[in-house]
Simulated assay, not measured.
Amino acid sequence: MTPDVSVVVPTFRRPALVVEAVKSALSQDGVRVEVQVLDDSPEGSAREPVLALGDARVRYVQRDVPTGGNPATVRNEGWPRATGRYLHFLDDDDRVAPGAYQALAHALDAHPERGVAFGRVEPFGDDAQVLARQTAYFEDAARRARVAQRLGSRRWLVANMMFRPTVLVNSACLIRRELLPVLDGYDPRLPLVEDVDFYLRAIRRAGAVFLDRVVLEYRTGAPSLMHNERDAKKAVSAYRLIHERYRREWGALEFTALRLATRTVLRWL
C-alpha cells in the first residue's frame, strides 16, 4: 500500500542519534511510513546501525560524493524516490513526537487547499541555559504561529519567516509530495536556513495549517551549522538570496509591504 508519510533523513557521522530519529518515525501510530536514510559521510558511518534495525520500511543509501555539509543537496536526492502522500524531512538529531504524523496528516487531509502542516517544537538537552533559551524561543514561535493562523493570511506567516526569527524548523513540518517538483526542492546554494527558504516558498504558494500541539522533540546543544555563531555572515548572505528571490517571484511591492508590516504591526503581535 502507498505510504502516508515518506521520511527523508540526511545524516553525517551521528550513528546513534540517527537511529533514535529513525525509530521515532517508525514508531508513529495510525499512518503508513517509509524512511530513507541518506548517509553523507564518506565512510558510511550510519550503515551498520541503520541496517541493524532490520525494518523493511527503512532504506539506507550511502551517497557517492559527500557534500561537505550541504543538507539541501542531500534532501533533494531523497524526495524524488519518495512514494508517500506527504513528505517529512527529519534531521538526524531530532525525534518525531508521539502521534505527530497522524495529527499532521489529518490536518492536511482536512485542508486539501493547503500544502504544509507544522506544529510546536519541544526542545530537550543537557545544558540548562541553552535549553531555557531554546524553550523561550519556541514558545514565542508558537505564539506568533497562532497569531498568523487567526489572521488567516499566509503572507503574515511568510513575513514572520523572512523578517523575524522563523516560527518553524525543518523537522516540524509535513508537506504534500506534489509540491516538491513545483518548488524544485531545496535551494543547494544555501548552506544555512535552507529550510526557512524551502518552507517559506511552499507556504507562500500553497498555504499552511498550524497545529497547536508538540510534533517535534528538538535536540539542543548538539554541534550543527546553526549552532555555530561563526556562520552568522553566511546566514545574512542566505537571507539576502531569499529576499531577492521573493522580490523577483512575488513583486517588490509585496516584499516592501511585508517588510514595513513587520517593522510596525507584526512586531507587536
Score class of each variant (00 low, 15 high):
Ala105Trp: 05
Ser45Trp: 09
Tyr246Pro: 03
Arg13Lys: 14
Ala136Gly: 14
Phe124Ser: 07
Ala117Asn: 00
Leu131Thr: 09
Arg120Lys: 11
Leu51His: 09
Ser171Met: 04
Arg81Gly: 04
Val19Ala: 01
Val74Gly: 06
Pro165Ala: 15
Arg144Leu: 13
Arg189Ser: 14
Arg176Glu: 07
Ala257Ile: 14
Asp231Arg: 14
Arg201Gln: 14
Leu200Ile: 08
Met1Ser: 15
Arg85Ser: 01
Arg263Asn: 14
Asp55Glu: 10
Trp79Arg: 05
Glu139Asp: 13
Leu174Arg: 05
Leu253Glu: 15
Ala97Phe: 09
Arg177Gln: 10
Tyr60Asn: 01
Asp197Asn: 15
Ala128Cys: 08
Pro71Cys: 10
Leu131Pro: 06
Ala148Lys: 04
Asp55Gly: 07
Arg63Lys: 12
Ala82Trp: 07
Pro49Gly: 10
Ala97Asp: 11
Ala25Tyr: 03
Asp184Val: 04
Gly152Lys: 07
Ser171Trp: 05
Arg219Phe: 05
Arg263Ile: 03
Asp126Trp: 06
Pro42Trp: 00
Leu180Thr: 15
Gly78Asp: 03
Trp156Tyr: 15
Ala141Tyr: 00
Phe89His: 06
Arg204Lys: 09
Glu254Ile: 06
Ala100Leu: 03
Val209Asp: 00
Thr83Cys: 04
Gln28Thr: 02
Arg201Ala: 11
Ala103Met: 01
Val167Gly: 05
Arg247Glu: 13
Val265Leu: 15
Arg259Met: 13
Asp40Gly: 02
Arg267Pro: 00
Ser153Val: 04
Arg95Glu: 14
Thr262Trp: 09
Arg143Phe: 12
Pro80Trp: 05
His227Ser: 12
Arg57Ala: 07
Val265Cys: 07
Thr83Phe: 02
Arg47Ile: 00
Val9Ile: 12
Asp195Lys: 06
Gly207His: 07
Asn170Ile: 09
Val35Ala: 10
Arg63His: 08
Ala72Leu: 09
Ala145Val: 10
Asp64Glu: 15
Gly54Lys: 12
Val116Tyr: 00
Glu178Thr: 12
Thr166Ile: 06
